Simulated scan of single mutants.
Amino acid sequence: MTFKRCFSPVVDSNTKVLVLGSLPGEVSLAHNQYYAHRQNRFWHLVGEVIGENLSGMEYTERLRTLLQYRIGLWDVVAEARRAGSLDSNLRDLASNDLSALVATLPHLVAIAFNGNTAAKIGERALGARISQYRILKLPSSSPAYAALPYAAKLAAWRALHDCLA
């Protein structure tokens, strides 16, 4: 099993909503970009929520646009061993210090978990701080989570909009 590390957080002092995934998959790691797999629906889902064509933008512009809308990104897993990209293959994981990060975000009102694995690990890592925020457990944007059709995922992800108002 290969040892994998997460990317740096994409946040600034105006971040209002923090979206947390588990750990970037193989394609994302290879491209050094969040949600780089063409079949991952993350950029489509968030783009529809904010009314921007994120998937049609260059990566750096996507990140800038997220920050303009006060949305931050990071992962709950700092590092782990994992064969492939599936969360079910995570081994020997170390969590990111989510409490330290959220303490630097004075305008943060909501934390959204992209999938069940992210929620389980993230809630544990946040501990008592979790009660200070609105928590959204969103269906995974991963192509591996095909049990829910895109329209149903989008309906759930639209809850991000309410947190940005």
Results as ranks from 00 to 15, higher is better:
V11Y: 07
V11F: 08
V17Y: 05
L20A: 07
G21Q: 09
S22W: 04
L23G: 04
L23H: 03
P24Y: 02
E26N: 11
Y35T: 05
H37W: 00
R38N: 10
R41P: 00
W43T: 12
H44K: 07
G47K: 05
V49Q: 06
I50L: 05
N53E: 15
G56H: 09
Y59V: 10
Y59K: 10
T60E: 14
T60C: 08
R62V: 11
R62T: 10
L63N: 00
Y69I: 03
G72R: 08
G72Q: 10
L73Y: 08
W74N: 09
D75K: 02
V76T: 15
V77Q: 00
A78T: 02
R82C: 14
A83F: 13
G84S: 03
G84Q: 04
L93R: 12
S95W: 00
N96Q: 14
L101A: 11
L101H: 13
V102A: 08
T104S: 14
T104P: 01
L105T: 03
H107R: 08
L108P: 00
V109G: 15
F113N: 01
F113H: 00
G115L: 01
N116F: 05
G122M: 02
E123S: 06
A128H: 07
R129M: 13
Y133H: 07
I135G: 12
L136E: 10
L138G: 06
S140A: 14
S140V: 09
